[in-house]
């Protein structure tokens, strides 16, 4: 169970609160949509949950323990822009090895071709890079996956292909999903329930 209790967060001491007294709980294997008008802290909350930011007040607990401060984080966040998520000076293969290497079945299911591995990120398209960024976190150590507009930049076919793999993986390993998307159709397809921010 992933639980956030009374989270408060702001980016600076004189700036307004972005997250105010937010509490939520997500069970393993659950698929939850995070809903709020734009600019109301959806991305901030996902960064808090994945440990990219530290809340000023409140705690995030995974199975009643605080998040580990080092080592592989069991809660992983996928961003909208894959070209920022991969070191531009590394070959793809090196980036894939940054985390425990994903299984060949995952790579094949995502349509990742062996020929891509020796290339540099600027030689691949956004859709191809996003498949790699996702493959990297589809490992058994991942317990929760937060998708922040994960497929907003991708065409419908690549979007469906990526979600098919992610949903299958989540079901098989009991991974909880938190999904942010502007597309209501997509949220309706994927999620079982929605959490409205601030509510």
């Amino acid at each position: 169970m992933l639980k956030a209790n009374g989270l408060w967060f702001r980016y600076g001491r004189r700036l307004p609160w972005v997250i105010e007294n937010q509490t939520l709980a997500i069970a393993p294997g659950e698929r939850v949509a995070l809903v709020a008008p734009s600019g109301r802290g959806k991305t901030t909350l996902s960064k808090l949950l994945a440990g990219y930011l530290q809340p000023q007040q409140g705690q995030i607990r995974l199975d009643d323990r605080p998040l580990p401060s080092q080592g592989y984080c069991p809660i992983q966040l996928i961003f909208q822009h894959p070209e920022l998520a991969i070191n531009p000076r590394w070959r793809i293969d090196q980036s894939l090895n940054e985390a425990p290497r994903p299984s060949p079945e995952i790579l094949a299911a995502l349509g990742i071709q062996p020929g891509w591995l020796q290339r540099y990120p600027h030689e691949l398209s956004g859709g191809e890079l996003q498949r790699l960024a996702i493959a990297r976190v589809l490992t058994p150590a991942t317990r929760y996956l937060i998708a922040d507009e994960m497929t907003a930049m991708l065409d419908a076919n690549t979007q469906a292909l990526i979600w098919q793999v992610v949903l299958e993986f989540a079901q098989e390993h009991g991974v909880g999903l938190v999904v942010i998307s502007h597309s209501e159709a997509l949220l309706g397809r994927i999620c079982e329930r929605a959490i409205a921010l601030g509510g």
């Binding site: 998520a85 991969i86 000076r89």
Partner: peptide
């Protein structure tokens, strides 16, 4: 940079990141 922050969440130590992400740059 996103990729450095991600690297930390993927379990890499600050020393590893300095050696592999910062130095070559």
């Amino acid at each position: 940079a996103d990729y450095v922050q991600i690297s930390r969440r993927l379990g890499r130590s600050p020393f590893w990141i300095a050696q592999h992400h910062l130095m070559p740059h």
